[in-house]
Amino acid sequence: MTEFRPDPAPDESLLDEEGPAIEIHGLRTAFGDHVIHDGLDLVVERGEVMGVVGGSGAGKSVLLNTIIGLRRPQAGTIKVFGQELDRASRRHWSQLEQSWGVLFQGGALFSNLTVRENVAAPMFEHTRMSRREAHELAELKIAMVGLRPEAAALKPAELSGGMKKRAGLARALALDPELLFLDEPTSGLDPIGAAAFDELIKDLADSLDLTVFMITHDLDSLYAITDRVAVLADKHVVATATVHELEKSDHPWIREYFQGPRGRTARQARMGEDA
C-alpha cells in the first residue's frame, strides 16, 4: 500500500516538464522468496514508443503494475516525470494518475457500465465535469479510437474483442495523458485487427505526442511502431535498443526471439512493406 508524504506548497511544481518520462534504478520485486526483478534499470525517454519483451515469467506485467503503483517494490527507485513514487504526496499521485493512461490486457472494462460510462469514469474521479460534459467528451474519445457512435451505448459483453481493446484505449485516453501504458494490446486479435490496432497506436502517439510503454509478444508490433525495445531476462533489463540492433545481439534469448522463424517472418514482412 502506498504511503503518502505531506502535500507540497500550493505553488510547488508537481511534475518535471523535462527529462525522461520514466526512470527506474535498482528495482527489486518479489513474491515471497521468488524474486522477479533484481537490479533492474530502465529509462524511457519522452515521446518514444518503448516496447517491453521477455519470456513467460520474466515479469513484464509485474513491472508495469509496479510503475503505476499497484505493487510496491522491495528495493530501488521509480521516477515518473521526475517524481519519485515512494516520496509522492497525495497531490503528486493525483497529478501522476492524470498524466498516464493504462490499457490493461483484455480491456478491463466495468461490465455493468456502457462504453460511454466506462470512458467517462476517470473524468468523474479526477475532474469536476458535469455528467453531460463527461459523456460528450467520452463520445469524442470513442470516435478517436475508431469506434462507431452507437458503440457508446453498448455494454462490454456486447463488444467484440477488438472493440473491447478500442474501448479500453478510449478510457486510457480520457484525461489527455502524456504517458500511455499498454499491456499486450494486440493479444487475441487476428492479424488484420492487430495491424489496424498498431496503426492506431502509432497515429495517436504521433498526433498527441504520447510516450508509450508497451508490453507485447507481437513481433509485428515491435517492427511496426516501436522506437526502442527493452528486453527482460535474468531478472533485469539485459538490452535496450532498436529492433534492428537487437537482431544482431548474441544474448541467447534475444537471438532466439528475433532470429527464430517468427522473427524472420516479421522482419521479411516489414522489409516488404518498406520496399
Results as ranks from 00 to 15, higher is better:
Q95V: 12
Q95L: 07
Q95R: 14
L96M: 11
L96E: 08
E97F: 01
E97H: 09
Q98E: 13
Q98S: 11
Q98M: 12
S99W: 00
W100Y: 15
W100S: 06
G101L: 01
V102P: 08
L103M: 08
F104L: 11
Q105T: 07
Q105I: 07
G106E: 03
G106R: 04
A108M: 08
L109N: 02
L109R: 02
F110R: 06
S111P: 09
N112L: 04
L113T: 05
L113H: 11
L113A: 06
T114Q: 14
T114C: 13
V115N: 08
E117M: 05
V119W: 06
V119P: 11
V119F: 06
V119R: 12
A120F: 07
A120I: 14
A120H: 13
A121L: 15
A121G: 03
P122A: 07
P122K: 06
M123Q: 14
M123W: 00
M123T: 14
M123V: 15
F124G: 05
F124N: 02
E125G: 09
H126L: 09
H126V: 00
T127N: 15
T127C: 14
R128I: 08
R128F: 09
S130P: 07
S130F: 01
R132Y: 02
E133Y: 01
E133H: 12
A134N: 13
A134G: 12
H135P: 07
E136A: 12
L137A: 10
A138K: 05
A138T: 10
E139I: 07
L140N: 11
K141I: 04
K141T: 00
I142R: 06
A143K: 13
V145E: 04
V145Y: 01
V145P: 06
G146F: 02
G146Y: 04
G146W: 00
L147Y: 07
L147R: 06
L147N: 04
R148E: 13
P149C: 05
A151K: 00
A151C: 05
A151F: 00
L154W: 10
L154R: 11
K155I: 06
K155E: 07
A157D: 11
A157E: 13
A157T: 12
A157Y: 10
E158H: 06
L159N: 02
L159A: 02
S160H: 10
G161V: 03
G162A: 05
G162Y: 01
G162E: 02
M163K: 03
K165C: 02
R166N: 03
G168C: 04
L169E: 02
L169G: 03
A170G: 10
A170E: 06
R171Q: 10
R171V: 09
R171L: 08
A172K: 00
A172S: 12
